[in-house]
Design a protein around this nucleic acid. Structure first.
Length: 478
DNA sequence: GTAGGGTTAG
């Protein structure tokens, strides 16, 4: 039989679902020979298939070659850019789409909202929200949930809650998103308070709801509550814990210093252990300086994932904190031998709707002189207030003096200094980091919030930190 | 009769 514009998209969708790029390319060849390569449905399906299989360049090439792109194809491409780490491009595409006269619908807006989530850029988030309001898009449960997630991940838990409260219809995903949001903003109590509210509104939790609840407990040190929920999950709801639930529990017990119980729990597991689980245990060993257990966790971790430089850095930091310099050097050598490099840290800050990016020791910013001057003045004030730089967080083979220099110019310190000179006094400073914030920068930022009387909101790779008056919302649990 | 959308650990 002849293939047509109905059969081909279905076949292409199967390739997408199975992430079968080889088959996908084969079908693409068939499309080219079939004469259907100008069909909307076929093309959109191909772009989507390439994007979801991680072949973003192929998706883009095909997209650029299309002569008449319709709304769905634009939406697919906008979503693909956001997903593959180029959320900025998503927003650029969104503008271009409208310039070409294509009117977005609510599904397109979800992809745009999602790009803002990835960017973590509050001013963009507000603009997109205004656009949604101006064009009177009804907040259905999916677009509403996306907005809740967007505001939370851009740093405003209050705006997220406002949207949440205004949503007429909420489902389990909406509730879970809000619970998770309180969790990563360090407001564990509020996360837990939502649970009975959710139940009384007739919504049943799923396994993800429980991950979010347990996460909220571990990040606030709510140990007993977490243990109760963990039992409740299987006893009352019949959910067998998966590795994510165990990871939250290891984190919960580990942070609380109950490392032996954490280890016992791991040993009792019937599901497969993954690197995240060992990471949680290793992180707890760092906090509580348990070197023996750290080495055991690190061994399992590096067996499972020998190519992740972050694991070596974490272990090396643990050794450094314990003054075990030889072991630290060994860990670093192992990294070199395996040709691994520490992932460079980046920090972003938005000022006047523009995003500025900093790396360690960065001098590319046009106001570099002023930034470094601010950093210098600031450091003097902080030291008078009692701040002592912790050079254990520098993993370079350099003399102590140089270490200070490197630590001093970590990307988050530069971004904060820029924030201080480029925004009005008293306004909050929001920054985003691609890695976890380092211990020294965490202390530094606490002092800055006290000395400058600014609220500083930091989104790192894991969670949010709200610094105010010399303290952090994470309660130093991070 | 065909395509695009939201939540989760470390």
């Amino acid at each position: 039989m002849q293939l047509d514009n109905y059969t081909l998209p279905s076949v292409i969708r199967s390739c997408r679902e199975r992430k079968d790029l080889v088959m996908g390319r084969l079908i693409h060849d068939i499309v080219l020979k079939s004469g259907l390569s100008v069909d909307h449905f076929v093309c959109a399906a191909l772009v989507d298939m390439y994007a979801k299989c991680g072949a973003i360049d192929d998706a883009r090439e095909l997209f650029d070659k299309m002569s008449n792109r319709d709304l769905v194809t634009w939406t697919v491409m906008i979503g693909a850019c956001g997903e593959c780490g180029n959320a900025n491009e998503s927003l650029v595409l969104f503008d271009r789409m409208r310039e070409e006269g294509i009117v977005p619908d609510k599904v397109a807006m979800v992809s745009v909202v999602h790009a803002c989530v990835k960017l973590g850029a509050m001013s963009k988030a507000r603009l997109v929200h205004e656009f949604i309001n101006r064009n009177k898009f009804p907040l259905d449960v999916i677009l509403g949930t996306a907005l809740v997630d967007m505001y939370a991940k851009c740093g405003s838990i209050d705006s997220a809650r406002e949207i949440f409260d205004r949503m007429r219809r909420k489902n389990v995903i909406t509730w879970s998103a809000m619970i998770a949001a309180y969790g990563y903003h360090g407001q564990g109590r509020k996360a837990l308070d939502l649970f009975p509210m959710m139940l009384s509104s007739g919504i049943l939790p799923n396994k993800i709801t429980f991950v979010s609840l347990l996460y909220a407990c571990s990040h606030r040190g709510l140990t007993e509550e977490g243990l109760r929920l963990f039992s409740l999950m299987s006893d009352d709801y019949g959910f067998e814990p998966d590795v994510k639930h165990y990871t939250c529990m290891v984190d919960l017990l580990g942070r609380a210093g109950r490392l032996n119980e954490a280890l016992k729990l791991i040993e009792s597991m019937k599901v497969e252990k993954d690197e995240g689980l060992w990471c949680a245990l290793l992180g707890a060993c760092r906090i509580h300086k348990n070197l023996d257990l750290a080495e055991m966790a690190a061994k399992s971790l590096l067996e499972l994932q020998p190519q992740n430089p972050g694991h070596y850095v974490l272990l090396a930091n643990i050794y450094a904190n314990a003054g075990r310099w030889q072991d630290m050097a060994k860990t670093r050598d192992l990294m070199t031998k395996r040709k691994l490099k520490k992932i460079p840290g980046w920090t972003w800050i938005e000022v006047d709707n523009k995003i500025y990016q900093f790396s360690v020791g960065d001098r590319t910013h046009p106001r570099s002189e002023e930034i470094y001057l601010m950093l210098k003045t600031l450091s003097k004030k902080l030291e008078l207030a009692g701040y002592v730089p912790d050079t254990n967080f520098v993993l370079h083979d350099v003399a102590e003096e140089d270490k200070l220099g490197i630590l001093h110019t970590h990307s988050e310190k530069l971004a904060i200094s820029f924030g201080l000179i480029a925004t009005p006094e008293g306004t909050p400073i929001r920054i985003t980091k691609n890695l976890r914030v380092c211990g020294d920068c965490h202390t530094f930022t606490k002092f800055v919030s006290a000395v400058t009387e600014r609220v500083i909101i930091v989104r790192d790779a894991n969670r949010f930190h709200h610094f105010e008056g010399g303290a952090c919302s994470c309660g130093d649990y991070w």
